[in-house]
Simulated scan of single mutants.
Amino acid sequence: MKLVVTIPAYNEENTIGKVIKEIPREIEGIEKVEVLVINDGSTDNTVKVAKEAGADRIVGFKENKGLAPAFRLGLETALEMGADIIVNTDADFQYDQKQIPDLIRPILDGEADIVLGSRFKGWIEHMPIQKRIGNKIATWVTRMASGYPVSDAQTGFRAFTRETALRLNIMSDYTYVQETILQAVNNGMVIKEIPVNFRKREGKSRLISNIFSYAKRGAPIILRTYRDYNPLKVFSLIGGTITLLGLLMGLRVLVHYFKTGIVTPYLPSAVLTVVLLVVGLQVIILGLIADMIKTQKKLQEEILYRLKKIEFDMRRETKNSFNRDINP
Protein backbone atom coordinates (compact mmCIF):
# COMPACT_ATOMS: atom_id res chain seq x y z
CA MET A 1 0.00 0.00 0.00
CA LYS A 2 1.55 3.27 -1.17
CA LEU A 3 0.63 6.76 0.00
CA VAL A 4 1.47 9.88 -2.00
CA VAL A 5 1.06 13.25 -0.30
CA THR A 6 0.46 16.02 -2.84
CA ILE A 7 1.29 19.65 -1.99
CA PRO A 8 0.22 22.38 -4.45
CA ALA A 9 2.51 25.35 -3.80
CA TYR A 10 2.79 28.91 -5.03
CA ASN A 11 5.51 31.09 -3.48
CA GLU A 12 5.59 29.20 -0.18
CA GLU A 13 9.36 29.16 0.45
CA ASN A 14 8.88 30.12 4.10
CA THR A 15 6.63 27.20 5.02
CA ILE A 16 6.83 24.33 2.53
CA GLY A 17 10.00 22.94 4.09
CA LYS A 18 8.27 22.64 7.47
CA VAL A 19 5.25 20.97 5.83
CA ILE A 20 7.41 18.33 4.12
CA LYS A 21 9.48 17.59 7.22
CA GLU A 22 6.35 17.19 9.33
CA ILE A 23 4.84 14.52 7.05
CA PRO A 24 5.22 11.10 8.75
CA ARG A 25 7.16 8.62 6.63
CA GLU A 26 6.14 5.56 8.62
CA ILE A 27 2.41 4.88 8.96
CA GLU A 28 0.73 1.68 10.09
CA GLY A 29 -0.82 -0.08 7.09
CA ILE A 30 1.30 1.89 4.60
CA GLU A 31 4.43 0.38 3.05
CA LYS A 32 5.75 3.54 1.43
CA VAL A 33 5.11 7.28 1.76
CA GLU A 34 6.20 9.71 -0.93
CA VAL A 35 5.85 13.49 -1.12
CA LEU A 36 4.88 15.17 -4.37
CA VAL A 37 5.13 18.96 -4.71
CA ILE A 38 3.21 20.72 -7.49
CA ASN A 39 4.95 24.01 -8.16
CA ASP A 40 2.33 26.42 -9.48
CA GLY A 41 4.72 28.82 -11.19
CA SER A 42 6.47 30.03 -8.03
CA THR A 43 8.87 32.93 -8.47
CA ASP A 44 10.65 32.45 -5.13
CA ASN A 45 12.73 29.55 -3.76
CA THR A 46 9.81 27.17 -3.21
CA VAL A 47 11.29 24.45 -5.44
CA LYS A 48 14.75 24.69 -3.90
CA VAL A 49 13.42 24.55 -0.34
CA ALA A 50 11.14 21.61 -1.23
CA LYS A 51 14.07 19.62 -2.63
CA GLU A 52 16.22 20.34 0.41
CA ALA A 53 13.37 19.33 2.73
CA GLY A 54 13.08 15.89 1.10
CA ALA A 55 10.36 16.07 -1.54
CA ASP A 56 10.44 12.84 -3.57
CA ARG A 57 9.18 14.47 -6.74
CA ILE A 58 8.46 17.99 -7.97
CA VAL A 59 6.31 18.80 -10.99
CA GLY A 60 4.56 21.97 -12.02
CA PHE A 61 3.99 24.87 -14.36
CA LYS A 62 6.27 27.60 -15.65
CA GLU A 63 3.65 30.19 -14.74
CA ASN A 64 0.91 30.42 -12.15
CA LYS A 65 -2.24 28.61 -13.31
CA GLY A 66 -4.25 28.37 -10.10
CA LEU A 67 -5.18 25.83 -7.45
CA ALA A 68 -7.50 23.62 -9.53
CA PRO A 69 -4.98 22.93 -12.35
CA ALA A 70 -2.28 22.28 -9.74
CA PHE A 71 -4.55 19.86 -7.87
CA ARG A 72 -5.48 18.12 -11.13
CA LEU A 73 -1.81 17.70 -12.06
CA GLY A 74 -1.14 16.40 -8.55
CA LEU A 75 -3.78 13.68 -8.85
CA GLU A 76 -2.54 12.59 -12.27
CA THR A 77 1.10 12.46 -11.16
CA ALA A 78 0.27 10.63 -7.93
CA LEU A 79 -1.61 7.99 -9.93
CA GLU A 80 1.37 7.73 -12.26
CA MET A 81 3.59 7.19 -9.20
CA GLY A 82 1.42 4.22 -8.25
CA ALA A 83 -0.44 5.74 -5.30
CA ASP A 84 -3.06 3.57 -3.60
CA ILE A 85 -4.05 6.49 -1.37
CA ILE A 86 -3.58 10.19 -2.11
CA VAL A 87 -3.53 12.87 0.56
CA ASN A 88 -3.72 16.49 -0.52
CA THR A 89 -2.50 19.18 1.85
CA ASP A 90 -1.63 22.88 1.72
CA ALA A 91 1.89 24.32 1.61
CA ASP A 92 1.23 27.07 4.15
CA PHE A 93 1.79 24.92 7.28
CA GLN A 94 -1.72 25.51 8.61
CA TYR A 95 -2.66 21.82 8.68
CA ASP A 96 -0.98 19.41 11.09
CA GLN A 97 0.65 16.76 8.90
CA LYS A 98 1.06 14.47 11.91
CA GLN A 99 -2.70 13.88 11.57
CA ILE A 100 -2.28 12.16 8.19
CA PRO A 101 -2.55 8.67 9.81
CA ASP A 102 -5.92 9.72 11.26
CA LEU A 103 -7.00 11.15 7.91
CA ILE A 104 -6.36 7.95 5.98
CA ARG A 105 -7.57 5.53 8.68
CA PRO A 106 -11.22 5.42 7.40
CA ILE A 107 -9.85 4.50 3.95
CA LEU A 108 -7.58 1.79 5.34
CA ASP A 109 -10.53 0.43 7.30
CA GLY A 110 -12.68 0.39 4.15
CA GLU A 111 -15.15 2.92 5.55
CA ALA A 112 -14.71 5.77 3.05
CA ASP A 113 -13.66 6.72 -0.46
CA ILE A 114 -12.90 10.33 0.49
CA VAL A 115 -11.96 11.70 3.90
CA LEU A 116 -12.20 15.43 4.60
CA GLY A 117 -10.25 17.06 7.40
CA SER A 118 -12.81 19.36 9.01
CA ARG A 119 -11.43 22.44 10.69
CA PHE A 120 -14.82 23.35 12.16
CA LYS A 121 -15.08 19.96 13.87
CA GLY A 122 -11.52 20.29 15.11
CA TRP A 123 -9.41 23.06 16.63
CA ILE A 124 -8.77 26.42 14.91
CA GLU A 125 -5.97 28.57 16.24
CA HIS A 126 -6.96 31.55 14.11
CA MET A 127 -9.13 32.28 11.07
CA PRO A 128 -9.89 35.84 9.85
CA ILE A 129 -13.55 36.75 10.20
CA GLN A 130 -14.08 37.29 6.46
CA LYS A 131 -12.57 33.89 5.69
CA ARG A 132 -14.66 32.23 8.39
CA ILE A 133 -17.83 33.80 6.97
CA GLY A 134 -16.83 32.86 3.42
CA ASN A 135 -16.15 29.26 4.46
CA LYS A 136 -19.48 28.99 6.25
CA ILE A 137 -21.43 30.38 3.28
CA ALA A 138 -19.63 28.22 0.72
CA THR A 139 -20.08 25.15 2.92
CA TRP A 140 -23.81 25.84 3.29
CA VAL A 141 -24.23 26.23 -0.47
CA THR A 142 -22.25 23.02 -1.09
CA ARG A 143 -24.36 21.20 1.49
CA MET A 144 -27.59 22.34 -0.18
CA ALA A 145 -26.32 21.49 -3.68
CA SER A 146 -24.87 18.08 -2.81
CA GLY A 147 -27.26 16.90 -0.11
CA TYR A 148 -24.28 15.79 1.98
CA PRO A 149 -24.07 17.33 5.48
CA VAL A 150 -20.50 18.57 5.08
CA SER A 151 -19.17 20.82 7.86
CA ASP A 152 -16.11 22.16 6.00
CA ALA A 153 -16.38 22.10 2.23
CA GLN A 154 -13.31 24.34 1.79
CA THR A 155 -10.75 22.16 3.53
CA GLY A 156 -7.62 21.45 1.52
CA PHE A 157 -6.63 18.58 3.81
CA ARG A 158 -8.31 15.52 2.32
CA ALA A 159 -7.59 11.92 1.33
CA PHE A 160 -8.70 9.89 -1.70
CA THR A 161 -8.58 6.25 -2.67
CA ARG A 162 -6.97 5.40 -6.00
CA GLU A 163 -10.35 4.50 -7.49
CA THR A 164 -11.82 7.82 -6.39
CA ALA A 165 -8.93 9.77 -7.92
CA LEU A 166 -9.46 7.93 -11.20
CA ARG A 167 -13.14 8.93 -11.25
CA LEU A 168 -12.67 12.61 -10.40
CA ASN A 169 -12.65 15.00 -13.36
CA ILE A 170 -11.76 18.53 -12.27
CA MET A 171 -13.08 21.00 -14.84
CA SER A 172 -12.65 24.24 -12.90
CA ASP A 173 -9.66 26.55 -13.36
CA TYR A 174 -10.02 28.15 -9.93
CA THR A 175 -10.70 25.77 -7.04
CA TYR A 176 -11.49 22.07 -6.76
CA VAL A 177 -12.87 21.80 -3.22
CA GLN A 178 -16.62 22.03 -3.85
CA GLU A 179 -16.52 20.34 -7.24
CA THR A 180 -14.92 17.16 -5.86
CA ILE A 181 -17.59 16.85 -3.16
CA LEU A 182 -20.44 17.31 -5.66
CA GLN A 183 -18.87 14.78 -8.04
CA ALA A 184 -18.29 12.29 -5.23
CA VAL A 185 -21.89 12.48 -4.00
CA ASN A 186 -23.34 12.15 -7.49
CA ASN A 187 -21.10 9.16 -8.21
CA GLY A 188 -22.14 7.36 -5.04
CA MET A 189 -18.81 7.65 -3.26
CA VAL A 190 -18.67 7.49 0.53
CA ILE A 191 -17.41 10.66 2.22
CA LYS A 192 -16.32 10.90 5.82
CA GLU A 193 -15.12 13.86 7.90
CA ILE A 194 -12.64 13.81 10.75
CA PRO A 195 -11.68 16.73 13.02
CA VAL A 196 -8.27 18.31 12.31
CA ASN A 197 -6.19 21.11 13.77
CA PHE A 198 -5.73 24.39 11.92
CA ARG A 199 -2.88 26.78 12.67
CA LYS A 200 -2.65 30.50 12.11
CA ARG A 201 -1.38 31.30 8.63
CA GLU A 202 1.99 32.93 8.06
CA GLY A 203 1.40 35.67 5.50
CA LYS A 204 -1.54 36.35 3.18
CA SER A 205 -3.71 33.74 1.48
CA ARG A 206 -2.84 33.20 -2.18
CA LEU A 207 -6.32 31.88 -2.99
CA ILE A 208 -8.78 34.03 -1.05
CA SER A 209 -7.85 37.71 -1.28
CA ASN A 210 -11.30 38.73 -0.08
CA ILE A 211 -14.69 37.13 0.42
CA PHE A 212 -16.32 38.93 -2.51
CA SER A 213 -13.81 37.85 -5.16
CA TYR A 214 -13.92 34.28 -3.83
CA ALA A 215 -17.72 34.20 -3.95
CA LYS A 216 -17.69 35.67 -7.45
CA ARG A 217 -15.41 32.92 -8.74
CA GLY A 218 -16.45 30.05 -6.48
CA ALA A 219 -20.25 30.25 -6.73
CA PRO A 220 -20.40 29.59 -10.52
CA ILE A 221 -18.37 26.40 -10.00
CA ILE A 222 -20.96 25.04 -7.55
CA LEU A 223 -23.90 26.09 -9.73
CA ARG A 224 -22.33 24.71 -12.90
CA THR A 225 -21.52 21.36 -11.31
CA TYR A 226 -25.01 21.08 -9.79
CA ARG A 227 -26.57 21.94 -13.17
CA ASP A 228 -24.52 19.29 -14.96
CA TYR A 229 -25.62 16.54 -12.56
CA ASN A 230 -29.25 17.70 -12.13
CA PRO A 231 -30.21 19.32 -15.46
CA LEU A 232 -33.88 18.28 -15.51
CA LYS A 233 -34.47 19.61 -11.99
CA VAL A 234 -32.69 22.92 -12.74
CA PHE A 235 -34.33 23.62 -16.09
CA SER A 236 -37.76 22.42 -14.91
CA LEU A 237 -37.57 24.82 -11.99
CA ILE A 238 -36.58 27.74 -14.22
CA GLY A 239 -39.02 26.85 -16.98
CA GLY A 240 -41.83 26.15 -14.52
CA THR A 241 -41.32 29.52 -12.84
CA ILE A 242 -41.43 31.36 -16.16
CA THR A 243 -44.52 29.41 -17.23
CA LEU A 244 -46.26 30.17 -13.92
CA LEU A 245 -45.51 33.88 -14.35
CA GLY A 246 -47.01 33.68 -17.83
CA LEU A 247 -50.15 32.00 -16.51
CA LEU A 248 -50.55 34.60 -13.78
CA MET A 249 -50.00 37.39 -16.28
CA GLY A 250 -52.58 35.89 -18.63
CA LEU A 251 -55.15 35.36 -15.90
CA ARG A 252 -56.27 38.99 -15.81
CA VAL A 253 -56.38 39.04 -19.62
CA LEU A 254 -58.75 36.05 -19.59
CA VAL A 255 -60.89 37.57 -16.84
CA HIS A 256 -61.26 40.81 -18.82
CA TYR A 257 -62.00 38.88 -22.02
CA PHE A 258 -64.75 36.81 -20.38
CA LYS A 259 -66.31 39.99 -18.97
CA THR A 260 -66.11 42.20 -22.06
CA GLY A 261 -65.33 39.94 -25.00
CA ILE A 262 -62.32 42.07 -25.98
CA VAL A 263 -58.59 41.92 -25.27
CA THR A 264 -57.43 45.26 -26.70
CA PRO A 265 -56.88 47.11 -23.37
CA TYR A 266 -54.64 44.28 -22.20
CA LEU A 267 -52.90 43.55 -25.51
CA PRO A 268 -49.34 44.11 -24.12
CA SER A 269 -50.10 41.74 -21.25
CA ALA A 270 -51.50 39.18 -23.69
CA VAL A 271 -48.34 39.35 -25.82
CA LEU A 272 -46.13 39.05 -22.74
CA THR A 273 -48.19 36.06 -21.59
CA VAL A 274 -47.59 34.25 -24.86
CA VAL A 275 -43.87 35.05 -24.76
CA LEU A 276 -43.52 33.79 -21.18
CA LEU A 277 -45.43 30.58 -21.90
CA VAL A 278 -43.37 29.85 -25.01
CA VAL A 279 -40.06 30.60 -23.28
CA GLY A 280 -41.05 28.58 -20.21
CA LEU A 281 -41.97 25.53 -22.28
CA GLN A 282 -38.76 25.87 -24.31
CA VAL A 283 -36.67 25.90 -21.12
CA ILE A 284 -38.44 22.75 -19.90
CA ILE A 285 -37.78 21.08 -23.26
CA LEU A 286 -34.16 22.19 -22.96
CA GLY A 287 -34.08 20.43 -19.57
CA LEU A 288 -35.31 17.20 -21.18
CA ILE A 289 -32.57 17.45 -23.79
CA ALA A 290 -29.96 18.21 -21.12
CA ASP A 291 -31.15 15.17 -19.16
CA MET A 292 -30.52 12.99 -22.20
CA ILE A 293 -27.06 14.55 -22.55
CA LYS A 294 -26.46 13.74 -18.88
CA THR A 295 -26.86 10.05 -19.73
CA GLN A 296 -24.22 10.41 -22.41
CA LYS A 297 -22.02 12.29 -19.95
CA LYS A 298 -22.18 9.37 -17.52
CA LEU A 299 -21.14 7.00 -20.28
CA GLN A 300 -18.26 9.30 -21.22
CA GLU A 301 -17.14 9.51 -17.60
CA GLU A 302 -17.18 5.72 -17.34
CA ILE A 303 -15.14 5.42 -20.53
CA LEU A 304 -12.69 8.04 -19.28
CA TYR A 305 -12.38 6.21 -15.96
CA ARG A 306 -11.61 2.92 -17.71
CA LEU A 307 -9.05 4.56 -20.01
CA LYS A 308 -7.31 6.26 -17.08
CA LYS A 309 -7.34 3.04 -15.09
CA ILE A 310 -5.76 1.11 -17.95
CA GLU A 311 -3.18 3.85 -18.57
CA PHE A 312 -2.06 4.32 -14.97
CA ASP A 313 -2.20 0.59 -14.15
CA MET A 314 0.06 -0.09 -17.15
CA ARG A 315 2.45 2.64 -16.03
CA ARG A 316 2.59 1.20 -12.52
CA GLU A 317 3.16 -2.33 -13.82
CA THR A 318 5.90 -1.11 -16.17
CA LYS A 319 7.60 0.71 -13.29
CA ASN A 320 7.32 -2.34 -11.03
CA SER A 321 8.75 -4.57 -13.74
CA PHE A 322 11.64 -2.17 -14.25
CA ASN A 323 12.35 -2.16 -10.51
CA ARG A 324 12.29 -5.96 -10.41
CA ASP A 325 14.74 -6.11 -13.32
CA ILE A 326 17.31 -3.82 -11.70
CA ASN A 327 16.74 -5.27 -8.22
CA PRO A 328 16.19 -9.01 -8.82
Score class of each variant (00 low, 15 high):
residue 197 N to W: 07
residue 321 S to C: 09
residue 183 Q to G: 08
residue 113 D to K: 02
residue 31 E to Y: 07
residue 133 I to H: 08
residue 117 G to V: 00
residue 20 I to M: 08
residue 71 F to E: 11
residue 81 M to D: 10
residue 295 T to M: 06
residue 23 I to F: 06
residue 85 I to E: 04
residue 179 E to Y: 01
residue 316 R to M: 13
residue 30 I to H: 01
residue 280 G to D: 10
residue 266 Y to K: 12
residue 265 P to A: 12
residue 93 F to R: 09
residue 271 V to Q: 07
residue 162 R to K: 12
residue 293 I to P: 08
residue 72 R to Y: 00
residue 204 K to I: 13
residue 306 R to G: 08
residue 175 T to Y: 05
residue 67 L to I: 01
residue 166 L to P: 13
residue 261 G to F: 01
residue 46 T to Y: 02
residue 241 T to M: 13
residue 137 I to K: 10
residue 26 E to M: 08
residue 300 Q to G: 07
residue 211 I to F: 08
residue 216 K to S: 15
residue 113 D to C: 08
residue 220 P to L: 06
residue 262 I to Q: 07
residue 96 D to S: 13
residue 7 I to D: 02
residue 31 E to D: 15
residue 262 I to W: 07
residue 37 V to S: 09
residue 31 E to A: 12
residue 200 K to Q: 09
residue 218 G to L: 00
residue 175 T to A: 12
residue 163 E to Q: 10
residue 165 A to L: 08
residue 39 N to C: 02
residue 141 V to Q: 06
residue 269 S to N: 14
residue 324 R to W: 10
residue 327 N to E: 14
residue 202 E to Q: 10
residue 61 F to I: 09
residue 285 I to F: 14
residue 169 N to M: 05
residue 6 T to M: 14
residue 127 M to T: 07
residue 143 R to I: 03
residue 232 L to H: 10
residue 246 G to E: 06
residue 324 R to Q: 12
residue 282 Q to S: 14
residue 293 I to V: 13
residue 99 Q to T: 14
residue 96 D to N: 15
residue 230 N to K: 11
residue 131 K to A: 13
residue 86 I to S: 02
residue 280 G to I: 00
residue 64 N to G: 11
residue 275 V to K: 05
residue 321 S to T: 15
residue 186 N to P: 04
residue 85 I to R: 06
residue 127 M to K: 02
residue 77 T to G: 03
residue 72 R to A: 10
residue 106 P to H: 10
residue 185 V to G: 07
residue 208 I to G: 04
residue 7 I to W: 04
residue 256 H to Y: 11
residue 271 V to M: 04
residue 210 N to K: 02
residue 185 V to D: 13
residue 115 V to A: 06
residue 308 K to N: 09
residue 229 Y to E: 11
residue 29 G to A: 10
residue 191 I to A: 07
residue 14 N to W: 06
residue 134 G to T: 11
residue 68 A to L: 01
residue 262 I to G: 11
residue 274 V to W: 06
residue 238 I to D: 12
residue 316 R to P: 08
residue 324 R to V: 09
residue 303 I to C: 05
residue 157 F to T: 00
residue 240 G to P: 02
residue 293 I to L: 12
residue 149 P to Y: 03
residue 111 E to Y: 05
residue 84 D to M: 00
residue 34 E to Q: 14
residue 223 L to D: 15
residue 84 D to C: 01
residue 4 V to L: 07
residue 253 V to A: 05
